[in-house]
Design a protein around this nucleic acid. Structure first.
Length: 882
RNA sequence: GCCGGGGUGGCGGAAUGGUAGACGCGGCGGUCUCAAACACCGUUGAGCUCAAACUCAUGAGGGUUCGAGUCCCUCCCCCGGCACCA
């Protein structure tokens, strides 16, 4: 047996034995509880894994291994998210076919995951680009299509000119392509969408019951962006501005043909409306232009053209000065019956609400800014109280709208004096009773744009006939396979490369007539929206899954991955699951019962300040330099920073290097121990050395004690050695709890304390049976964390088989209980002494013992005792007069 | 601006309202060694220039409490997300 941790001598041996024994094959035995542990579906990049990725896989593995030892049937699968832009872009760069490439990269991932001892059931693995998988992605697409949840529409979409494809809203960050940082453009192309908006409320409501990090739930809530308000109709009074209409007469004709609807969350401020605004794309604008005089027509036309010429990023920059143009028309404020001017301005977005607003400059900052610029009336209608209007005036004088939701209405006719809440309710009712409008809920979330004008994705199983109507490919003709081609580079014309492949393009529809295949493919997020279902039944050739198997395994009990997918994958997968639930295809409304986000591993990375003439990359605050270059630079030029490990930064430590230098178990221990699971950590060789030291201590302890080890220790227990048994059972309890709550750092630290205590104890006491129990428990508790070492030591003690097959130790609370406790003695809340008493000492005896403390007596200084607080098992606080 | 999450030794971090700083890294002293590295043992919040005792200490300031890192209020700073969404 090794008295030091010598990973090169045994780790590879154990990995081979595990593989030979098919140790991690999913068990589905009746009568056992199930546990489904899952890591985010990785795209296998050519760079391979870094130790940063391991931060995801190791903790899940620890939990899954413990669950198995606790007697669960455990499903712990892994596969590859192979379709999509990252794979295709890399393949183009390397002039390779993506399929061969992703399989090669996937094999590297698998090798590295095996290298660090992750216990995946590889028999269930698949690539999302396998026809046997994407057949069912298409099958689910069809179900959505049949339900009207997948539809094709012409829309102005986010187009990335570098990736040459349309992107979902979720993939655009600050107007830039989330993947490559290129500013996106607006393009009008017919696209496929999933109607996720129809599920907005349920996606919002069901968040409440999920055991997910609050931050992620919040991001989803923000993204869904529910707001309650009133949508109502405004009619246009064709105005004197044109000289062709008589305002008074038109006002009488309130049923004027031209109407538009506005949405507001602040119906209580309607008496303060002093103008309204249409988005430049609003359909009414055209109608108005038809009736406009030349002067206004020219101004509005010019403005709209300018607005369209602006990129989305520029147009939506929040700090931009507001611009707009008066149409010359007026609309009637339904609350006051008075006309207000209609403007066109690009700060109003066509995509939200109705694309038109009532503007209340007194109480909305955007409207306020606009009103000041165009010299429009600013009417105060909300104030802290009817009498107290100076705060509003003051705010306006300082250039701020008074946006408070507290307070009451002023200058608002019969509603004056009502609180904001009252008026919102009453005005909503009033609108509804007159049929002018209704209370309504709006969501910020838009439908999910799923089509991509790229080759490497799951083909959309739709046929277009010559009349332009759409038909789904019949189920028995699935999958629609991607044609094997040599050249698949995207074009700039908004068409998929598949459109230029006649063998793919031309097909016949169900009536035998010529048809054209849909040539867009699905974005990768479609593939990852159901893979967790396929893992339940991955080799099923007749259906996407056996409902009984999905019913057994779902939901995922613990889902682990990075926080960056908060509003993409995690929202999409929830949506698909809900749709499948509604179709009766899965029995759960939510796919992931518990979610954990791991922190990143940061590498120490050299940067230097830009030299004259140099510009910084987007998002960088210095110029990245290589480690070689860094050595040449002076200290004041260099800035070292901790940044996320990535190949492009040159700061990656691979698991191969870490395992070679320190060992797989050391890597596992280090990553678990170095910080809380969700915190970012700074990679440190010293820290790795500490992990090695700990494992060496364990090896030494077991090897020194080995000759005294009693496999049948239960028979040798003599009732003595209570300390040892107490440590053992306290450790079992704490480690089990900590692993369950993802507190791996404290779980490891508990084991360290246990090892320190035992190492000391084996030299001091006999008690071999009690120590044998302790050492055996230690090895089993260590098994999920450092499985190679645990198995090696297990074998070294003469035991056979794998620790994975042993039962997880259970804590006996009677044995774990302390029989002596240290009690803190405080005087006026300050610690003055500690005393040791038997557990279960009565409050009165505790108090008496505390009073007997010399140090306490000294600090009481003979003063009057006002009160004595006794906390059983903890402390006694003596409160004396000052 | 809005919404989250945070601020504890030289560093990573522990602490169900009850002995702040567990555990580890680093440092210091020692053992081993010709020597170094490794390993092992001891020590390590600050102040009071041995110790004991005491005092101070969880971003700042108030408050609640017998007792606050933990709860409440005000403010500062850091990280993440959203952002002209009416």
């Amino acid at each position: 047996m090794y008295d030091r941790y010598e990973p090169h001598n045994f780790e590879a041996k154990w990995r081979k034995r595990w593989a030979d024994a098919d140790l991690f094959r999913t068990r589905e035995e009746a009568g056992r509880p199930k546990f489904y542990g899952l890591d985010f579906f990785p795209y296998p990049s050519g760079a391979g894994l870094s130790v940063g990725h391991c931060r995801n896989y190791i903790p899940t593995d620890v939990l899954c291994r413990m669950r198995f030892m606790q007697g669960y049937n455990v499903l712990h699968p892994m596969g590859f998210d192979a379709f999509g832009l990252p794979a295709e872009n890399e393949a183009i760069k390397r002039q390779r076919h993506p399929e061969a490439m992703v399989h090669e990269y996937g094999a590297t991932y698998k090798r590295q995951m095996d290298l660090i001892g992750i216990g995946y059931d590889w028999s269930r693995s698949f690539y999302s680009s396998d026809p046997s998988y994407y057949k069912w992605t298409q099958w689910i697409f069809k179900r959505l299509f049949e339900k009207g949840l997948a539809y094709r529409a012409n829309a102005a979409v986010n187009w990335c000119p570098k990736d040459k494809t349309a992107l979902a809203n979720e993939e655009v960050v600050g107007g830039l392509c989330e993947r490559c940082g290129t500013p996106v453009e607006r393009r009008e192309i017919p696209q496929w969408f999933f109607r996720i908006t129809e599920y907005a409320q349920r996606l919002l409501d069901d968040l409440d019951d999920l055991d997910w990090p609050e931050g992620i739930k919040n991001q989803q809530r923000n993204w869904i962006g529910r707001s309650e308000g009133v949508e109502f109709e405004m009619s246009v009074a064709e105005t004197a501005g044109s000289g062709r209409f008589d305002l008074e007469a038109e006002q009488v004709k309130a049923e004027a043909e031209l109407r538009f609807r506005v949405f507001t969350t602040r119906i209580d401020t309607i008496f303060g409306m002093s103008f309204c605004v249409l988005a430049p794309e609003h359909p009414l604008v055209e109608q108005l232009l038809l009736r406009s005089d030349e002067e206004h027509m020219a101004a509005v036309t010019t403005y709209i053209q300018a607005a369209k010429a602006l990129g989305d990023t520029e147009r939506q920059a929040a700090d931009r000065f507001k611009t707009g143009v008066d149409t010359g028309f007026k609309a009637i404020n339904p609350a006051t019956g008075k006309p207000v001017p209609i403007f066109v301005a690009d700060y109003v977005l066509m995509g939200y609400g109705t694309g038109a607003i009532m503007a209340v400059p007194g109480h909305d900052q955007r409207d306020f800014d606009f009103a000041r610029k165009y010299d429009l009336a600013i009417l105060p209608v909300i104030a802290p109280s009817v009498e107290q209007t100076d705060l509003v005036i003051e705010a306006h004088a300082k250039g701020n709208a008074f946006e408070s939701k507290d307070g009451v209405l002023i200058n608002s006719g019969e509603y004056t004096g009502q609180t904001v809440a009252e008026a919102q309710h009453n005005l909503g009712v009033w609108m509804e009773s007159l049929g002018l409008g209704e209370r309504k809920v709006n969501y910020r979330i838009r439908d999910w744009l799923i089509s991509r004008q790229r080759y490497w994705g799951c083909p959309i199983p739709i046929l277009h006939d010559q009349g332009g109507s759409l038909e789904a490919v019949s189920d028995d003709a699935l999958p629609v396979e991607l044609p094997a081609v040599d050249s698949y580079e995207p074009g700039d014309d908004g068409a998929s490369p598949l459109a230029s492949i006649p063998e793919f393009l031309n097909a016949t529809n169900s009536e035998g007539r010529l048809a054209r295949r849909e040539t867009d493919t699905m974005g990768g997020f479609a593939c990852s929206s159901w893979y967790f279902l396929r893992f339940c039944d991955p080799a099923n050739y007749t259906q996407a899954w056996d409902p009984a198997k999905v019913a057994y395994w779902m939901p995922v009990d613990c889902y682990v991955g990075g926080a960056e997918h908060a509003v993409m994958h995690l929202l999409y997968a929830r949506f698909w699951t809900k749709v499948l639930f509604d179709l009766g295809l899965v029995p759960v409304k939510e796919p992931f019962a518990r979610l954990q986000n791991q922190g990143q591993v940061l590498g120490y990375t050299p940067y230097r300040s830009p030299r004259p003439g140099e510009t910084l990359e987007f998002g960088e605050s210095g110029i990245l330099v290589s480690f070689e270059e860094a050595e040449q630079l002076s200290d004041d030029e260099l800035q070292w920073r901790w940044v996320r490990m990535s190949k492009s930064k040159g700061n990656v430590v691979t698991p191969d290097e870490a395992v070679e230098q320190y060992g797989a178990d050391a890597l596992r221990v280090y990553e678990l121990f170095v910080a809380p699971f969700e915190a970012d950590v700074q990679w440190s060789n010293e820290g790795m050395q500490g992990a090695v030291r700990f494992l060496s201590k364990v090896c030494r302890l077991v090897s020194v004690f080995g000759p005294r080890f009693q496999p049948q220790w239960r028979e040798g227990l003599c009732g003595e050695g209570k300390d040892i048994r107490r440590w053992t059972h306290q450790t079992i309890r704490k480690v089990t709890d900590d692993v369950e709550r993802f507190a791996f750092n404290t779980a490891v630290s508990t084991l360290m304390i246990f090892v320190n205590n035992l190492s000391d104890a084996i030299n001091r006491v006999g008690m071999d049976a009690e120590l044998s129990e302790a050492v055996e428990s230690l090895i089993l508790l260590l098994s999920p964390i450092a499985p190679h070492t645990a198995d090696e030591l297990w074998e070294g003690l003469g035991r056979t088989g794998f620790t994975y097959h042993e039962a997880w130790p259970t804590a006996d609370s009677a044995l774990a209980a302390e029989d002596e406790i240290t009690i803190a003695v405080q005087v006026n809340g300050k610690l003055r002494d500690t005393i040791t008493v038997a557990a279960g000492t009565s409050d009165a005896d505790l108090e008496a013992a505390a009073m007997g403390s010399e140090k306490a007596v000294f600090h009481m200084d003979g003063k009057e005792i006002r009160k004595v607080v006794v906390v059983p098992g903890k402390l006694v606080n003596i409160v004396v007069a000052n």
